[in-house]
Amino acid sequence: MSRATGVSRAALRSWRDGTRGARTSGCPRCASVPGPPEPQAAYAYLLGQYLGDGTLSRGRGNVWSLRIACADSYPLIMAECAGAVRALRPNNTISRLHRQGCTYVTARWKHWPCLFPQHGPGMKHTRAIVLEPWQEEVVGRHTAEFLRGLFHSDGCRMTNWTRRTVAGVERRYEYPRWFFSNRSADILALCSGSLDRLGIAHRFPRPDTISVARREAVAALDAVVGRRS
C-alpha cells in the first residue's frame, strides 16, 4: 500500500492503529490540567539559569530555541545545565554553540515560552520579571536549586582580605565572600527573597549586587551552590 499510494508506512500504520494525530506536545502547561514541569527540581535550577544567562528566540515553524550561556571555564556547570534541560526534555537534541569565552547550551521546542513566560522583547532589566503563581510554588519547594541556578549564572565566590594589628603585630586575614550581580531589580529581589527563605544573611553593597559575607552565611550558601567548576 505504501508503494502504491506513496504514503509512508508510518502514516499507514498510525491510520490502521487509530493513533493518527494522537501525539501531544508534551507541554505540562498546555495539558487539560496544567501542572508544573517535571522534575520540578531540574526546572527550578534551569529557571535560575534562564533568568541569569538565558534567552529564547523563535525560529522557523514557530519553534523556539532556549539558549543558556555557560562560561567555558566552568565545564561542570555547563554539564549540569545541559543535564537539567535533558531531564525536562529527554527526547530533545541538546547542542552546544561555541563562542569566545562561552558556550551556549541550546535546545529547540515549540513550548519553551510556556515554561518561561518571563520571555519578552528587550533585555530583562528593561522590563518586569514576575514569576507566575505555579513558578512561585516550584521555587518555594525547591529554593536551593533555584538559588544554585542563579549563582551558577550570575554569581561568583571571591576571597577578600584585610590587615589587623593584634598584640602589636600586623596580620593578614582572608575570608570568602559570595556576590550575585544582575541589572534587573526584579531578579535581584527573587534572589534576595530566596536567600531570606533559607535564612542566609546578605546585603546590597551596590544597587545591582548582593553580597553574602558572614561566615555562617557563606557556609550555608556554599552548601547550596557548591563549587563553581
Rank of each mutant, 00 (worst) to 15 (best):
T159L: 13
T159Q: 05
T159A: 01
T159I: 11
T159S: 03
T159D: 08
N160K: 12
N160S: 11
N160F: 12
N160R: 14
W161K: 03
W161F: 13
W161G: 10
W161M: 07
W161D: 08
W161I: 01
T162C: 02
T162Y: 07
T162M: 04
R163S: 02
R163G: 00
R164E: 08
T165V: 14
T165S: 05
T165I: 10
T165M: 08
T165R: 14
V166M: 04
V166P: 01
A167Y: 02
A167M: 10
A167F: 07
A167D: 13
G168P: 10
G168S: 09
G168C: 08
V169A: 01
V169G: 00
E170C: 01
E170N: 06
E170M: 02
E170H: 02
E170Q: 09
R171S: 01
R171F: 00
R171Q: 14
R171G: 01
R171W: 07
R171T: 08
R171E: 13
R171C: 00
R172Y: 00
R172S: 01
R172M: 06
R172T: 14
R172Q: 04
R172H: 00
R172L: 04
Y173E: 12
Y173K: 01
Y173Q: 02
E174N: 11
E174W: 02
E174S: 08
Y175V: 04
Y175N: 04
Y175S: 07
Y175Q: 01
P176H: 08
P176A: 08
P176E: 12
P176R: 11
P176K: 11
P176D: 11
R177C: 15
R177V: 15
R177S: 13
R177H: 04
R177W: 02
R177P: 02
W178N: 06
W178P: 02
W178T: 03
W178G: 08
W178S: 09
W178M: 02
W178C: 05
F179D: 03
F179C: 00
F180P: 03
F180S: 04
F180W: 11
F180V: 04
F180R: 03
F180Q: 05
S181I: 05
S181M: 09
S181R: 15
S181D: 10
S181A: 11
S181E: 15
S181C: 08
N182T: 07
N182I: 02
N182Y: 04
R183S: 15
R183A: 13
R183M: 07
R183C: 09
R183L: 14
S184F: 04
S184W: 09
A185L: 12
A185E: 06
A185T: 12
A185M: 06
D186S: 07
D186R: 11
D186H: 13
D186M: 06
D186E: 05
D186C: 12
D186N: 10
I187F: 09
I187Y: 07
I187P: 06
I187M: 04
I187R: 03
I187C: 13
L188H: 14
L188A: 10
L188P: 10
L188W: 12
L188V: 11
A189Q: 15
A189N: 14
A189S: 15
L190V: 07
L190I: 05
L190C: 05
L190T: 09
C191K: 09
C191D: 03
C191Y: 14
C191F: 07
C191R: 12
S192F: 10
S192N: 14
S192L: 14
S192P: 02
S192W: 13
S192V: 12
S192M: 11
